[in-house]
Simulated assay, not measured.
Amino acid sequence: MPWPAPHAHRRRPIRRSVAVLGLLGLATAPAWAARPMVTDDARLVDPQACQLETWRRVGPEGGESWALPACNPAGGLELTLGGARQRGEGPATDAVLLQAKTLFRPLTPGDWGYGLAVGTVQRPGPADEFYAYLPFSRSFGLDELLLHANLGLLHEGATRRERLSWGLGLEWAVAPRLGGIAEVFDQAAGRPMVQIGLRSWLLPGRLQLDATAGERLGGEPRSRWLSLGLRLLTPPFLP
């Protein structure tokens, strides 16, 4: 699912302004493309289960902290409701993200899948954003290599304009509980941003740690960022 781009890279952050590019992660669990990727994959949280994605991004122009709980109560629709606190050159600001995601063709090992996600990021004032995007994923082998692509449309409340967003990403296996991730994406109609990092399962299938570094292509050092995050997945428990 799309997530807000680093605050240091755009004045109106949203890891989900419909980002589109994916990255990669390895492990022995079935769900890959997730935090810290901006690009989404063609998968959902397990039926009747939930997950919590949390991360901190920092850069020369400020930082942001996110918490995004998501659940799949009925088996075919993943719902996310979370928020962020962002600090830059001015006062700290808060954002709330609401998203719904479904699949038309679920991704399975050695095959491909796609779906649809729609959502909004709400902030004080007229800076709300609304978005929709199509996540596509292709698996090679037994998920040793995954390719992700997103294509979407973002509506900016402040400017009342629509903008195309896109992205491409990879996930690959490095070791039994370690995976690599890399992606390139554009959410701001400017020079694309790139991100690369690692993900590791602390508890296979339940608790994952990630770390990444990124920057805008051709940008100045002030466009760079570092991130550290945790992802928690629950077993099915919802009625």
Rank of each mutant, 00 (worst) to 15 (best):
A95Q: 15
G167L: 03
C71S: 09
P221N: 14
E129F: 15
E78G: 07
Y131H: 09
P126D: 14
R11W: 00
I14C: 07
T28K: 13
A92R: 07
V96S: 13
P2I: 01
L226H: 00
T80K: 04
G157M: 10
A127L: 12
I181G: 10
R123C: 09
E129D: 14
L23I: 01
T93R: 15
A74V: 07
E64A: 14
A95S: 13
W225G: 03
P30I: 03
T234D: 13
L145T: 13
R216N: 08
L77T: 13
T28R: 14
R222I: 09
E129Y: 14
A67D: 12
V118C: 06
W66F: 07
L97K: 01
C71M: 08
K101G: 04
V174Q: 04
E162P: 00
A182C: 02
R105K: 09
T28I: 10
R161A: 11
L146C: 06
V20C: 11
G169L: 00
P109K: 00
V121H: 06
A31N: 09
L153I: 09
A132Y: 05
L98K: 02
L44K: 05
P73R: 14
A92K: 04
H7R: 11
L134S: 04
G59H: 06
P109L: 04
H7M: 10
L116H: 03
W112M: 00
R160N: 08
G219I: 05
L207A: 15
V194F: 08
P91L: 00
R206P: 01
W66C: 02
C50S: 07
L147N: 03
K101V: 06
L21W: 06
D143I: 03
R105V: 15
P60A: 02
A149D: 02
A49V: 06
L232Y: 15
L26A: 10
P47R: 02
G22P: 05
A132V: 10
L23K: 08
G218Y: 07
G90A: 10
G59N: 02
P30F: 09
A95N: 11
G125M: 10
A158S: 14
G22V: 04
T93S: 12
W112R: 00
V118G: 10
M37Y: 11
H7A: 15
P2E: 05
A74I: 08
P47S: 01
A182K: 02
E156I: 01
E162R: 11
N72L: 05
E53L: 05
S65V: 09
L164A: 12
L98A: 15
E156D: 12
